[in-house]
Design a protein around this nucleic acid. Structure first.
Lengths: 187, 187
DNA sequence: GTCTATAACTTGATAGAC
DNA sequence: GTCTATCAAGTTATAGAC
């Protein structure tokens, strides 16, 4: 029987709390109650509230970026890369739906310099996807919609898996979603 | 030169403020400053902070529901209806991007009984779209992905238009997005 | 590490003068 | 309708006893 370090228990409870009430509306007293502590005791484990949000946001950002690294090593065709990106987003969303919700919805409550850094990482990620799309268009396998329109439509269309997944098997879900997205992009 | 009623000025400033900082992090003092009043003076025009959020959320909900009413009177085929729904979402997003962001992202800060009512309206809207999708599947014009998967993918994929629109002409945007979404749904 | 106590400040909202 | 003054409650975070 392995006991989780209390710090981890706090982070996980915080993610659920931020998901439910939003970062700003979630108080340290709320959080403390959920881990059976007084608010002041939390500060033996973390330095400040924002630190929790930082970890959630940057851990997830890293996950996406490293996932994309692997994909670009493993696949060379734009179509295979894009499909793998779709699977990456679905798998991450299914693996940790709570923290991905916070990552998606609460990052704007980061303060500088973390906010700036976060936005930069994200811009980076999106630019790399944009390059894939444009390569696919050049080689004639993708339709010639405006690239940012294709990118944004694809990325946002993946933003429901984490909180609304109806109970399909992951395999069925991956198959359906990739068919829906790629069906619109492929020539 | 028509002067806007101050109440409307307040609502519009509030929508922008809620969009920028989120409902919870936006204070009545922030809002007052933006309309050159003291916080207490706001209460001559509104009863409470949540009242503003209510109006924004329910006004937009009504817009979508009435839009769907019209669509279902005007078109009979599932494909034509679904395309019209896509245009409806795009047009609303382009017409008032700020208030649609608040509608999309901040509704969860409504309190009961408004929260319950809002969720009910939304469920209603989504059920009607689900029926369209299922009719299209039955008549063989839509692929047989899980209907809720098609619905959620379609609806969330429309949730970027309001805040990221790159500068395309609306017509090009409507054409691209409907091609991307319907291309994945059509048989 | 957890507690009590508290500092220092912000919050939404009200009372009442003008 | 707008102001000043104020309230009661809530906020993050720290100090120091145990």
């Amino acid at each position: 029987m392995v006991r989780k370090p209390k710090k981890q228990v706090i982070y996980e409870a915080a993610a659920r709390l931020f998901q439910e009430k939003g970062y700003s509306a979630a108080s340290m007293r709320d959080l403390a109650e959920r881990v059976n502590l007084k608010a002041s005791s939390l500060y033996s484990h973390i330095r400040k509230k924002e630190e929790i949000l930082q970890k959630i946001c940057f851990d997830n950002a890293r996950r996406f970026l490293e996932g994309l690294d692997e994909i670009q090593q493993q696949f060379s065709s734009p179509l295979a890369q894009l499909e793998a990106v779709i699977f990456l987003h679905i798998d991450i969303a299914l693996d940790d739906p709570t923290s991905i919700t916070v990552f998606n919805d609460e990052w704007k409550h980061l303060e500088d310099p973390y906010l700036k850094d976060f936005v930069k990482l994200r811009k980076n990620y999106e630019q790399r996807l944009l390059d894939i799309i444009q390569e696919g268009q050049s080689s004639g396998v993708f339709t010639t919609v405006t690239p940012t329109t294709a990118l944004n439509t694809m990325l946002t269309s993946l933003r429901w898996v984490h909180y609304k997944h109806a109970g399909d098997e992951p395999e069925k879900l991956r198959k359906d979603i990739s068919a829906l997205i790629l069906g619109g992009i492929k020539v």
